[in-house]
Write a protein that binds this DNA or RNA. Sequence first.
DNA 1: ATAAACTCTATAGTTGCTATAGGGTCAAGC
DNA 2: GCTTGACCCTATAGCAACTATAGAGTTTAT
Lengths: 129, 129
Amino acid sequence: MKIGQLAKVSGCSIQTIRYYEKEGLLSLPSRSEGNFRLYDEKALKQLEFVKHCRSLDIPLLDIKTLLELKNRPEESCSSINSLIANQLDLVNQRIKELKELKSELQIMKKACSSDNTVERCGIMKTLDV
Amino acid sequence: MKIGQLAKVSGCSIQTIRYYEKEGLLSLPSRSEGNFRLYDEKALKQLEFVKHCRSLDIPLLDIKTLLELKNRPEESCSSINSLIANQLDLVNQRIKELKELKSELQIMKKACSSDNTVERCGIMKTLDV
DNA sequence: ATAAACTCTATAGTTGCTATAGGGTCAAGC
DNA sequence: GCTTGACCCTATAGCAACTATAGAGTTTAT
C-alpha cells in the first residue's frame, strides 16, 4: 500500500510517517516506479508499535532503542524494565506537579467573582507577587 | 541593576530574560553607555509577574494579554477569569490523561519480571499490538 | 487529453526555552 | 597604562515532536 493508505489504516499522518522514517523509527520502504513509497503488513506493524510507544509518552530515542532490542530476542530485557519504570516515575512526577498547579489555580479561581474590574480582580492581585 | 543581577534576583536565566524582552513580555530597558541593559524595581516586578504566570503553565501569548489588561485597570476582568478557568480545564484534562497512562504503565511493569530475554518479555509483548 | 487526487523532497514553523559564536565593555590587579 | 577575567551584546542554531507549505512529479478516472 501507499503512504496515504498507511496513514488511514494507522491513524498517523503522512508527514509524521515520513518524519518517523527520517528519524530511523521506520524501515526504508520499497518504492514504485514513480518513486512512491510502498508498505507491507510488516511496516504497518512497526508503525503501530511506534505509535503505541508514543501513546505512552516514550521519547523517540527510547523507542528506537526498543526497536533495536526487538531485533535481538536473546538479549536481556532489563533495559526495557528500566525504561518503563523510568517512564512511570516521570508520569508520577508530572501528576504531582499538575495537582499542585491545580490547587493553586482553584484558589485563584475563587479569588475573583465575575463583573469586576482588573483593578479589583483577586486573580490579578494573586499574580502580582 | 544589570541583567546578570536581575537574573540572580529573579531566578530567571539571562537568556530567558532577553527572550522575554524579545517576545514583548518585558519592557525595553534603558541602556548604559556601553549598551548594557539597566533594570529597576519595576522591571523586576514585571519579570516576577511573568514567571509566576509561567509557573501556572500559562502560555506566553496569554501572559502578554494579562500584562495588557494590567495596564487597563478599569476594564472588566472577565477574560482573566476565563483564562484561569481554561487553564484549570487543561490541567484537569492532562491529569486525567496521565492517570490513564500511569495505569497502563503499571500493568506493563507487572508484565515482566527481571532476568528475561527480549523474546519472553511481557512488556515487549504488550507493546507489540 | 485533462483534471483531480495523490505523492515527492525540501524547508520553515510551532512553543519555550537553551547553547554557542564572535565580539564589546568593565573593573580589579599589576 | 596594560592585562585578564567577568560580564555583556546580538545573531543564530538547536532541542523535541511534530505540522504546514511550496513547487513539482505521478497516478487515476473520465
